[in-house]
Amino acid sequence: MQILLDIVSWVLLLAGSAFALIGAVGLIRFPDVYARMHASGITDTLGAGLILAGMMIQGGFTLVTAKLILILIFLLFTSPTSTYALANAAYSRGLQPLLGGPEPDPAALEAADPASAIPGQAESGSVGSVSGEDKSS
């Protein structure tokens, strides 16, 4: 019985880790703020949910499991709220979603973030080339 619970919790932990990694890779590779919000939602729902469920099975019926359930409830309430606030702030600032065309509007990027040009080029040449590949592909 203990072996069975261990196996189930390992499977849940590994699946949650895989979803967290997939969300992080999507956060790197997607071309737009709104698409990146979509990728970050994987980490917030399935990654956190599966990992916390795996830890709940390891914890058993104790105070630890109650705290884990509280963490899960807080995450499930706060992460859609903050993502909604982020999308609302970005859209009301005039950042248009990327529809069809591969090239984001440079004027909108400039208007949305006037300070982005200063730290970008000096310290990270390879990072700049990666984002250049993203735009051209």
Binding site: L27, V33, R36, M37, S40, T83, L86, A89, A90, R93, L95, P104, L109, A112, D113, A115, S116, G120, S124, V127, G128, V130, S131
Partner: peptide
Amino acid sequence: LMGPTVYDRVL
């Protein structure tokens, strides 16, 4: 670190 807009960084 490399997000083009400030909303990328917040996200």
